[in-house]
Write a protein that binds this DNA or RNA. Structure first.
Length: 203
DNA sequence: GGAGCGATGTCCT
DNA sequence: GGACATCGCTCCG
């Protein structure tokens, strides 16, 4: 039992050692927390995609290690943030032992704490529809103030990094497996994991 | 509520 | 030069 007011446990490096499909399932219903200007911005993870490094034509790591994707080949539990379509950032967490390049793409959160701040960061009114805050990989990065400059390569297993994942003991929901979104290669593999029926899942 | 499409920077061929 | 793990707007039902 958790003592009221005590900090919740942060997911450790060992949590991310497994293959990406396994970690993706475990990540659902955990809480992503961002420390922003002294405030907590938090959202429950409701949609994750798994990417298998060198064995996965859709993965950024597929063609081998480059300057951009180097984080994926490092130890598990680090943030890989990249810039896409000239205007959005996407957040991944590396998994598998060092040398392997699996990762998890965080695609949607159910916002839990700091909704007004998230709305401001998204350029929306404070009372905007919460579905517009963090439903989608680009949206959740904007809502949490995550950019490549500020977060690529940071350790998400450390509470001090300003971005980590907590386990609040929320009972896991039913998981649905779907094809991944927005890719051309290996588009048929069911590596998108969502909380079935959750309204904050993207699209 | 869904299809179509333009915006825009970076990476790798 | 082409592709890109997206988003928000328009237009049409």
């Amino acid at each position: 039992m958790t003592v009221r007011g005590a900090p919740l446990p942060v997911l450790s490096r060992a949590f991310y050692l497994d293959p990406p499909d396994v970690v993706a399932r475990k990540l659902l219903d955990k809480v992503l927390v961002r420390r922003y200007e002294g405030r907590r911005l938090a959202g429950r993870i409701v949609e994750v995609e798994a990417y298998f490094g060198l064995n996965d034509p859709a993965a950024h790591a597929f063609a081998g290690k480059t300057a951009r994707n180097a984080v994926l080949f490092g130890p598990p539990g680090f943030a890989y943030v990249y810039f896409i379509y000239g205007m959005h950032f996407c957040l991944n967490i590396s998994c598998e032992p060092e040398g392997q390049s699996g990762s998890l793409l965080l695609r949607a959160l159910e916002p839990v704490e700091g909704l007004a701040t998230m709305a401001r960061l998204r350029g929306l009114a404070p009372d905007a529809n919460p579905r517009l805050l963090t439903s989608g990989p680009g949206r959740l990065c904007e809502a949490l103030g995550i950019t490549r400059e500020t977060h690529n390569g940071i350790d998400v297993t450390s509470r001090r990094s300003g971005l980590h994942v907590e386990d609040d003991g929320f009972p896991p929901g039913n998981i649905a497996e779907l094809p991944r979104v927005g890719i051309r290669k290996a588009a048929d593999r069911p590596l998108r994991f969502v909380i079935a029926g959750n309204r904050f899942v993207s699209r």
